[in-house]
Every structure is written in structure tokens, then in C-alpha cells.
Design a protein around this nucleic acid. Structure first.
Lengths: 149, 149
DNA sequence: TTTTTCGTAACATCATTTGTTTCATGAAAA
DNA sequence: TTTTCATGAAACAAATGATGTTACGAAAAA
């Protein structure tokens, strides 16, 4: 199953951008992500529409975070990306005439809805600032283990 | 995103089989599901391997449920199907060298794991018997509303 | 005016599920 | 024994959707 990795991508990009003072180009981000600048523009475009980042053209242009790291949640990013389908498992037929299938759909939908609600709740509890401090912790731990060895 | 609808399919098939006394052919199930007999065999084959159904060839052959309806949970069916990926959202790179990406992955994986655990717990709480009685309730309600009108 | 960089459209590639064709095999009926 | 009905399985085709690529236009700064 091919998974939508855009949330993962934009998080990766945003944390790299958070480490920089100035704007970061699509080219640079594409190198970080191992992809293509056009894909970066396409994906980051959703975040621009949501007001989370800005972009500037020409010399010294690129992408900037246009929000406080502590105020941007994973849920906002997920919404900015258009709330892509959460589950890779689904009903065969969304509007069945068959009563048996309606029964099956209802059971599965209820269960998926519950799991999705939990996922979105957790997403709304995690900010970019949280991830940035996680990263700082990992970075420090790595330096420490390097010094020891 | 193309969703895996096999769990939905086998549930639909199993409930139809539960309504029948004798075996049900792949041909009949394919008509119920709006698909192809070969697809039915392919999918039901997983349930046979798990011992949930049996199949017989030749005249008066077909598929039978080989378990008590109350003892088969959605989780067992999900496992029988090979535990397909739950989420349509995932990490871009599963084994990143980049520490930023490791941080992002860890955060997402933890969240997804929690949501998946909830989903599997709910799956383990729902049996075929539950769905069958749901169906009976819907069926009765439909007959009632028909009589009134 | 040249270079840099984003914006966008159009198309190509790739992966995965689902559907289809085909033939072999086994079991029961004629 | 032959025919019919059914599954088993392999191989291939179609459809879908994310991702990658090419190409060109527009804007901003050197």
C-alpha cells in the first residue's frame, strides 16, 4: 500500500527551516528530503495557503516559517494538507443497497472513526516546538555519546 | 488512496454465508459483493488458511463457516488477511540517517501506534455474532417500517 | 539584463489493489 | 465412465493514486 508521506515530509522540512535564520530554497529542502524541488513547492504550497509558511521569489528567496513553532500543531498541518484519508482499510462500497453490507459498514466506520478521533487528538497535542526540542535532545545525546567514545 | 477493502468484503461474505444452511459458491458470493469469483476465492483463501472457513469442490461445493459466529472477531479476520497496513499516512523514509527525520518519524510512529492499538482492541471486541444480530435488528426495523407505511 | 527562485501545468513513473483469463484438479451426478 | 460443477492457482490486464520529472512563465534582486 502506498502511503501518503506528505505530513512526514513537511515536518522534516519545517524542522530544517526552523534551524535556519533566513529562507530556505526548494532546492535545499529537496536535497534534505531526497526528492525534487517541484514536489517541495507543491507540498509546501498547501502550508502557504494555510498561512503557516511564506515563500519569496528571486535572489535570497525561499521558504520561511510564518508562525510561532509552539502554535503550529500536527493537526493544523494535517488539515493544511487537505485532511488526507487516514486509513488504508475501508469499505468496499460506501453507499450499499444491501442491508448486510450496511451493517458491516456501520460497524467498521464506527471503529475507524474512534481511532481517527484519537489520532487527531494526539495530533492536536503535538507542536513543532515539541518536535524541535525532541530534536535538540537527540542532538545533545548524540554529541554526548560521541564525546564519550 | 486506494483502500484495502478485503476486511469489508469478507465480513459481507461471511454474514451472507451465515444466513445460508449449505455451502455458498464463489459465484454467488461474487454476485453479492459485486465482484469476480476469482477474487472471492483469493480473499476467502486467507480465511481458509486461518481455519475460519472451509471450501469444497465439485457438485454442491462452495464455502462454509467453520467456527462459531461468536468466536470469530474482526481482529482474527484482520490477522487472517495478513494484518494489512492500517494507515494511509506514513513516514517518507523508514530508516533515515537524518536526525531531524528520525525525530519526526518517532513522533508520528508513536501516535499511529496508539491509534492502531485502539483500533485492534475494538476489532477484538466485535464478533461475527454481533454483526449478525445487528443485521437482524436492521432487518426487523425495515420490515416494521414497511408494514407501517 | 542576467540570475535566481517560486508557480504551475502537463506528463511520466511506480506501486498496489482489483479484475480477468485460463487451465488444472477434484468431486458428484448422469 | 463421462459430464458437469466447483475450487486452486498462475499469469496477465486494468485502474487508481502518489510521487517524480520536464518545461516554461513570472517576479525579485544583483
Amino acid at each position: 500500500m502506498k502511503r501518503d508521506s506528505r505530513l512526514s515530509s513537511v515536518l522534516h522540512a519545517l524542522l530544517h527551516m526552523a534551524e535556519q535564520d533566513g529562507p530556505v530554497t526548494s532546492e535545499t529542502l529537496a536535497l534534505c528530503l531526497g526528492t525534487n524541488p517541484v514536489v517541495v513547492r507543491r507540498t509546501m504550497g498547501y502550508l502557504r495557503q494555510a498561512g503557516i509558511v511564506t515563500s519569496e521569489r528571486g535572489h535570497a528567496g525561499g521558504w520561511r516559517i510564518h508562525a510561532d513553532l509552539g502554535s503550529v500543531t500536527l493537526r493544523q498541518l494535517h488539515e493544511a494538507l487537505g485532511e488526507p484519508a487516514t486509513f488504508a482499510i475501508g469499505n468496499r462500497n460506501e453507499t450499499p443497497g444491501c442491508l448486510v453490507e450496511q451493517t458491516v459498514n456501520a460497524a467498521l466506520e464506527g471503529t475507524f472513526a474512534e481511532a481517527e478521533a484519537l489520532l487527531l487528538t494526539r495530533f492536536s497535542e503535538i507542536t513543532l516546538a515539541d518536535l524541535a526540542s525532541d530534536f535538540a535532545r537527540r542532538h545533545a545525546a548524540l554529541r554526548h555519546s560521541r564525546n564519550k567514545s
